[in-house]
Design a protein around this nucleic acid. Structure first.
Lengths: 417, 417
DNA sequence: ACTAATTTGTCAATCGCCATGACGAAATAG
DNA sequence: CTATTTCGTCATGGCGATTGACAAATTAGT
């Protein structure tokens, strides 16, 4: 995939580099006070605005872009020229004249330019996909593997072969991989490629970046985070402030505030699974008692339902519940109630505009929602908070990862001219 | 005819008006996709950077400012000239030469320029103060009044007389009030001056702005929010990510993320007092059961301690506990444990770098902390989270309000002509 | 004491980027 | 066929930061 790899190798893109200035108490420590504002920065931001406008609002003429982002037509012309020369935007030809006046020439983000590669390490599958700048999935591959307790090396090797497969297919279509984002079911240290712990994989302090060939800019993050970003970018009517709850084996949450992900000081935010629900409840491996996972975690629900852990546990639960199994329905009802109690705390604390259930929860939503909404509605004063179910379901994290790369290109189109 | 109307009617684009219409920014300028990036904006941001650098890091020479913010000395020179002409920065004279080379001339933010007025409506007091650009409190006035159940009109009238008193004093010293910020013990709707509800004052949907002469730019916000900002700006070794917990009558929290306050979609974030601790506990006026306030709220603690509500309840608790009253100590121990459980959820969810106890909690911290830390430490896996006590104590909200005005001047120095 | 070295603040010249206003081009309306 | 409207581009200008040079003020070295 290294056709133009050198071109992008130099610059660090994708926002991870920013911020985080150590606010050490010492006066001499904080050297830089934010980055200086120079004309190049202005240019970059305006290029980004053009990209976002064109990417988000279909084909657009230069004049329409200018009106939308508040610059003059002349300025937009030069910006668009630069983007076309960089292969990020292409001219589709004259617009259909529907109003009086000369028709503009339609612009769209390139379908041949850079593309984002998303990958996912699940507990029992691996997946990879390629998404182009327009947001279309151009290639995709999945493989069922039980990764429980498997060493990181072989897992990443397998994943890499999937990645090579999809990116080879994409390159044949003229796409150029611009970055790789990997979703993992575990905690990832902030601004790093290190999986601090992934209980279901039994990984600890694993530097995923060190296991991969350093061909592309890499991002590694929690699957719940990528799932939330997918909901933000691809969801039906996305509010910019919501709490995304997902469950694979553990229960994770991701909070989106003003269109940005809240990661926490160390990157560990979103551990909804270990919020205390019944403080004197059963012991939890985390050290606490009565954590949400003891009531709504996969294992707890299976046990309460009287089912043995099988191959596809979530599907098993769903089919049993759909068939009317009262044990299963009761277990899901209880899980929903526990979720509702934990979410009450979260909603009181964060005032999101909505709570979105993703991942396995979206599959089980029909049986979780009544008791969840009941607890939430009873306990929360005031206007309350909408509870919605994600359309994306289990695809969220993978799509979110690929789109994260695409967004990083939109955010800074001119990595290197 | 319709220059805008035709544009809208003709096209068939699926009007995806982005949700973020109500961006909190001061100037209207709500263009379609964020505001355009023009040279004036660059100038404004760089003026702001100079102001922040000079304000934060003591007297500084132009060269030092340039090195710190990454601009050239020449550019900083013109920026500083403009700030001096505007009366926001003043030249203190030649620096003491400690290194080789020509000594610079020290710059500091003006002590005679604009100043921020902070005011506070407490349940049993009113206060106002004036803070200059250097952060010094230049005037201050407090008055003990029992505001419980008093109508907003008279309360605001009394507060206004305090405000006039301090601002008259400040004007005699050459200060010019640049804005007014009022801290109230209740929920304030986002980007408004309306107190949606303040249970202890018995205010509902009260537009404080309408009760005040519109002399100055006004900000109204929750006292917990201002307290957290005070901690951020004035605290000992302030991390940029922390959870500030304060209690006056209710229990409020404010979350600071990357140096910014998280307000929530409606501005109601931080309702820690109504996080469920024991889901089947006693009923709470909010509608829930077993909310934190039922265990750690002022009333609950007084009841558990066997004390009658008196004049200064917090002080009463503190003196009894200090005297060794076992009933009081036990009540505070229980309250601390409940706080610890609620904070476990919050910390798991948000991963702050620290939890800071402010307001009345800082006074009672010696008796709350042991059980609080115990619960938190037992339940939270991983690196845990520091628990600190605010130095500011009850002064936090008032100082935070005044400083909020000062910060707004630093953030946009030329806006205040 | 005198010179060399270093740092500061400022000035003139230049470059980058966007705004302005005018123009030809391409469509519709009458 | 002409008037009107809108689009894209060009030349010009303004604004803001950079570059490079210089005088001023201080320390270091002999």
């Amino acid at each position: 995939m290294g056709r133009d790899g050198t071109e992008r190798g130099g610059t660090e893109r994708g926002g991870t580099e920013r911020g985080g200035t150590e606010r050490g108490g010492l006066p001499g420590a904080s050297r830089r006070e934010g980055l200086p504002d120079t004309q190049q920065g202005m240019r970059r931001r305006n290029l980004s605005r053009v990209m976002h406008a064109v990417a988000a609002n279909g084909p657009l003429s230069r004049a329409a872009v200018a009106a939308r982002i508040g610059l003059t037509r002349a300025a937009v012309s030069t910006l668009v020229d630069e983007l076309i020369r960089a292969g990020l935007v292409e001219e589709l030809g004259p617009e259909r004249p529907c109003r009086v006046g000369r028709p503009g020439s339609a612009l769209a983000v390139s379908a041949q330019g850079p593309a984002g590669i998303g990958a996912e390490v699940g507990v029992d599958h691996l997946a990879a996909c390629v998404v182009d700048l327009r947001g279309a999935v151009r290639a995709r591959a999945t493989r069922r593997v039980d990764n429980r307790g498997r060493a990181p090396g072989p897992v990443v090797t397998d994943l890499m072969s999937l990645i090579r497969q999809v990116s080879a297919g994409a390159e044949q279509e003229g796409l150029r991989p611009a970055g790789l984002a990997i979703a993992v079911p575990g905690l990832v240290a902030r601004d790093s490629h290190t999986v601090v712990r992934a209980p279901n994989l039994d990984w600890h302090d694993t530097d995923v970046g060190a296991l991969l060939p350093a061909e592309l800019p890499l991002v590694v993050d929690n699957e719940a985070n990528f799932g939330a970003l997918a909901e933000l970018w691809l969801g039906a009517a996305p509010p910019a402030d919501f709490l995304h709850v997902s469950a694979e084996v553990g229960i994770g949450a991701a909070l989106v505030v003003e269109g940005r992900l809240l990661r926490g000081a160390r990157g560990f935010a979103g551990e909804l699974g270990h919020v205390p629900v019944w403080p004197d409840g059963p012991k939890c491996p985390c050290g606490g008692r009565g954590c949400l996972e003891q009531y709504a975690g996969e294992e707890a629900v299976l046990r309460a339902a009287g089912l043995a852990p099988g191959a596809d546990r979530v599907e098993l639960l769903a089919t049993c519940a759909a068939a009317g199994d009262e044990n299963v329905r009761g277990a899901l009802r209880e899980a929903g109630a526990a979720l509702g109690i934990a979410l009450t705390g979260a909603v009181n604390l964060l005032d999101p505009r909505a709570v979105v259930l993703g991942g396995a929860l979206s599959r089980l939503a029909p049986w979780l929602l009544p008791s969840l909404r009941d607890e939430l509605g009873r306990r929360i004063a005031g206007p309350g908070c909408a509870v919605a179910v994600s359309r994306l379901g289990p695809d969220g994290p993978l799509l979110g990862a690929a789109h994260a790369v695409v967004r990083s290109v939109l955010d800074d189109p001119v990595g290197v001219a």
